[in-house]
Simulated scan of single mutants.
Amino acid sequence: MESSVRHTCLKLDLPVEDPKVKDAIFIKGTWFPSHFHLAITDGLNAWTCRASEEEVRQRAEQWDQPPAEYVALAERYLGFRQPGSKYGFDDAGHGQKRLSWTFEKQGTKMEWRWKCQPSSNNKQTTSEILDFLMDANIHLSEEVVRKTQSLEKLKAEAERCLLQSEKFNNEKAEFESAVYSKFVAVLNSKKAKLRELRDRISKLEATGKSSKEEDDSTDKTETFDEGSDGGNW
Rank of each mutant, 00 (worst) to 15 (best):
4 S>K: 13
9 C>G: 04
10 L>D: 02
11 K>C: 10
17 E>A: 07
17 E>L: 11
18 D>G: 06
20 K>S: 06
22 K>W: 05
25 I>V: 15
25 I>R: 01
27 I>H: 02
27 I>A: 01
30 T>S: 07
35 H>G: 01
36 F>H: 03
36 F>L: 11
39 A>Q: 02
40 I>V: 09
42 D>G: 02
44 L>V: 05
46 A>K: 01
46 A>V: 03
48 T>H: 00
50 R>A: 10
51 A>V: 09
53 E>A: 04
53 E>L: 03
53 E>G: 01
53 E>Q: 11
55 E>W: 13
57 R>C: 03
58 Q>S: 13
61 E>Q: 14
63 W>T: 03
63 W>M: 10
68 A>E: 14
69 E>Y: 10
70 Y>L: 04
70 Y>C: 05
71 V>D: 00
81 R>I: 04
82 Q>P: 00
83 P>R: 02
86 K>M: 15
87 Y>D: 01
90 D>A: 07
91 D>L: 06
91 D>E: 13
93 G>R: 05
96 Q>L: 07
101 W>K: 00
102 T>M: 04
104 E>S: 15
106 Q>F: 06
108 T>S: 05
111 E>D: 07
114 W>P: 00
117 Q>G: 00
117 Q>H: 07
117 Q>M: 04
122 N>A: 13
127 S>I: 12
128 E>N: 11
129 I>Y: 00
131 D>G: 04
133 L>Y: 04
133 L>K: 06
133 L>N: 02
135 D>Q: 06
142 E>C: 04
145 V>T: 12
149 Q>N: 14
152 E>P: 03
156 A>K: 15
157 E>L: 12
157 E>I: 15
158 A>F: 10
160 R>V: 07
161 C>S: 10
162 L>K: 11
163 L>K: 15
165 S>C: 07
166 E>I: 14
167 K>A: 14
167 K>P: 09
171 E>K: 12
174 E>V: 06
174 E>M: 12
175 F>K: 07
176 E>G: 08
182 K>G: 10
185 A>Y: 03
185 A>N: 08
187 L>V: 06
190 K>H: 03
192 A>D: 10
194 L>D: 11
194 L>M: 13
195 R>A: 13
196 E>H: 12
197 L>S: 11
199 D>W: 04
199 D>L: 08
200 R>L: 06
202 S>T: 15
202 S>N: 13
211 S>M: 12
214 E>L: 09
216 D>G: 10
216 D>Q: 14
217 S>E: 15
217 S>G: 12
218 T>L: 13
219 D>P: 02
223 T>C: 08
224 F>L: 05
225 D>P: 01
227 G>N: 08
233 W>I: 09
233 W>M: 04
